[in-house]
Design a protein around this nucleic acid. Structure first.
Lengths: 245, 245
DNA sequence: TATTGTTAATTTGTCTTACAAATATAACTT
DNA sequence: AAGTTATATTTGTAAGACAAATTAACAATA
């Protein structure tokens, strides 16, 4: 007799409640902006205590699936789950992946060259006027000399996202977001170097110009120039760090 | 006077605690398998009650950053955060993105053709013997006639992941995971069709053979054949659904 | 009539207290 | 040596109480 056994595992009540509510969101039973029953009612329906419901709701909140507000018109609501809402999950996952698995910048750069090359090709073909405007907005923000380092990073991410969006394929945009988010530590490094900022801004200006003119090959070669520049910058920073260390 | 104001926002104590603990994980203060102080101690350190700590910990658990166990050697531990651990976050995000934004199979298929074509090129160049073995294991699982639909889906995902891993670039693998996870609903559809299973298995066998022989172009054309087959299958299922509906 | 101020009701957020469940280890028994 | 039991510890769940935030309704005032 061949008896396959799996390890027994008791799942906590709060996780079971969270999983069921998540399934209701996934299968469309609960829609964006729907209001969930009060914590008291949920406790009665699931036959568990209110703190258990609260713990379940915190699980969902951590995944950005829901939000809560106090007051007579308050309650717990299902979030809109477009790419912006989901980007926090992506950001966390990507950042953790890169930092806790010692992913080198070279590995990220190689991946980036492959995927962003593809994005640039599609963006040159498909970019609408709105897409171009979004790139311009991000670039204008980056060009502001009084911008804080944090805002410079955010604008950098926004510029690359705008290009991903210009591919016209939402799934591809979404997948690219996790790559772009994984670059945050690098963007952080740039933001504090004013000379590096100038170089990046200049490259983004040229990229935008080439996308407007639908000149794919030149846009891609500027991209590669930027990726190599970042690698070099990072290597120099590492050397300086070792000399000081 | 030009007065820029941002909406005031009070962040709940449980979120503040969770954010601080997450930052400690991200900045390396807390490492994989580290044991956090007990809930009682955390409450004393953060000067909040134990239920507030528990709510914060549920936020982290939902992101797979920690796990808990009862008993004298139990406690709360930081998870290893390799791609497998992070794939749950990715899976949720991708599935939600696809289902709640009405992403069509065509959009997913177009994206998949572009990205998996790239993966196949790199995998044919870089696949090691271990990589090939992982593909074989996944395919062997899929070929088992007694396999449950759920396990067939899991093996399907595993096969595609093995190919992504064979590219030799961990960042690319990671990014591909979110695409592969977004295909889950489609894989679910296949798993209940025994004839479709045979077709998929045959295609995977041919793909594996071509990767072993480093024949990139043929592997890619089989991939495209599979993607088109899935689209056709999905369209037929939609037509049947409309006639019944 | 329009604006400002006050009050009441509602829901989530936090806290205190108590006990249960799971778990590993030490001690005891066979 | 193997099996059983008791113990201590930590997380999991529950009950009860009160605070904070918020909106709607109502009152007062210009």
């Amino acid at each position: 007799m061949n008896l396959d056994v799996a390890p027994l595992k008791k799942v906590s009540l709060s996780k079971q409640v969270a999983d069921q509510l998540q399934e209701a969101i996934l299968d469309g039973t609960l829609k964006a902006d729907d209001r969930l029953p009060t914590e008291e009612e949920l406790g009665q329906r699931f036959q568990v205590s209110r703190p258990t419901i609260r713990e379940a709701l915190k699980r969902l909140a951590a995944k950005n699936l829901i939000r809560s507000r106090r007051g007579p018109t308050g309650g717990t609501f299902v979030n809109h789950l477009d790419a912006n809402e989901l980007s926090d999950s992506l950001s966390t996952a990507s950042t953790l992946f890169v930092s806790m698995n010692d992913i080198s910048l070279e590995e990220v750069s190689t991946c980036r060259k492959e995927l962003e090359t593809l994005c640039f090709q599609l963006a040159c073909d498909h970019a609408s006027n709105d897409d171009i405007k979004n790139m311009e907005i991000a670039l204008n923000t980056q060009e502001d000399p009084s911008i804080s380092p944090e805002a410079f990073c955010a604008a950098d991410v926004q510029f690359h996202r705008a290009i991903a969006d210009a591919t016209g394929n939402r799934m591809l945009s979404f997948v690219m977001y996790s790559l772009i988010e994984g670059l945050q530590p690098v963007a952080n490094m740039i933001a504090y170097h004013y000379r590096a900022r100038e170089v990046i801004i200049n490259q983004h200006q040229r990229i935008l110009e080439n996308i407007k003119e639908r000149d794919t090959n030149t846009a891609i070669s500027v991209l590669h120039e930027q990726i190599d520049y970042l690698s070099q910058l990072h290597n120099e920073a590492q050397s300086n760090h070792q000399q000081k260390g």
